[in-house]
Design a protein around this nucleic acid. Structure first.
Lengths: 171, 171
DNA sequence: GCGGAATAGTTGCGCCTTCAACTACGCTAC
DNA sequence: GTAGCGTAGTTGAAGGCGCAACTATTCCGC
């Protein structure tokens, strides 16, 4: 830890970069690669088997978990880690499929409610088994219980830093 | 483990879905959220500070690590977890910036070599400190050494399943 | 060598996402 | 009540990416 000490500057622009050592590099790359491969694989399998991308699937799931199967657009965007713009476009596409419908919010005339239709719920019910099987195959079946626990710990630690408000949504 | 046993069918389409229990659900969500938030954050910080997206950055890094700073298009695509099409598009953009140049491969007339230019290398050198600082701030600074080790273990396990050929590239 | 299959890479189209500009409504102060 | 500001959500243009179709070259059997 004393091999190289850069001046303790408060401004990262001026300080010597805190480069990764070989072990950190390896850990970092293992994470980047595995995370991208896993998300790509799950998205592709879901899309090809059901015609629903993971992004759209997440929207349907979020709505289905609400008591009335409806949500304010902004809440839905936050829940799905989506920008408002992105969600707006996505809901338009889902409306075209007849899976979601927009409705003005009674309490706030500016707001919109996204409502999951019965057709949307049926589409979700059809897609869910496909998705859970992918997640089992490519994630849980590959891991020991200890690794699953480590994954949870790791994920929650990061989540606490990156977006503490989402930690509450884990149940 | 005996509470619910579905018939052991070889065909996932016919078997009862292997739903996630509450703990698995929680671990899964923590991972999905944290992975997406982290990749989004890193990509955004890099893009805003340097004008280079993480996808483009990866291409420059891969080329810079080669002895001659050049690579066959297909090798580069594999290394960057990119489709050939995607890489071809990306290299065209990087060529427009003067950071990469295409060159026919002497050994194989079908092949192309992507070559990192001096300008491209300079752009990478300017961007690297920004990126490493983001990775430190949002990842390593948040984790204990044990969590880093668990992250590596987890990543390598998944990588071994999803794309064993990439395991060798970790160094 | 030559015909057919396989491989390397590119291209155009369409969908998705981002960004900035925009509309519409609500809230507060005066 | 109305001016001004903040919030909710939408829109259109521009760029990234996947897919399928395409060209060009090499490989292989004969």
């Amino acid at each position: 830890m004393t091999a190289y000490v850069s001046p303790a500057s408060p401004d990262p622009d001026l300080a010597e970069p805190r480069w990764l050592d070989a072990d950190e590099q390896r850990a970092w790359r293992a994470w980047v690669y595995s995370a991208q491969l896993l998300t790509d694989r799950l998205d592709r399998e879901l899309t090809h088997a059901t015609g629903i991308s993971h992004a759209y699937y997440e929207i349907l799931v979020a709505l289905s978990e609400e008591p009335e199967r409806q949500m304010r657009m902004s809440e839905l965007a936050d829940r799905c880690l989506s920008s408002r713009s992105r969600l707006s476009h996505a809901v338009s596409r889902l409306e075209e499929r007849g899976w979601v419908r927009r409705q003005v919010c009674p309490e706030d005339g500016r707001g919109q409610l996204a409502v999951l239709t019965d057709e949307g719920f049926a589409a979700l019910e059809a897609a869910a088994p496909v998705h859970v099987e992918s997640v089992r195959t490519h994630l849980f079946d590959q891991l020991t219980p200890e690794q699953v626990e480590a994954m949870r710990d790791f994920g929650e630690t990061l989540l606490q830093h990156l977006d503490p408000s989402q930690v509450r949504g884990l149940d």
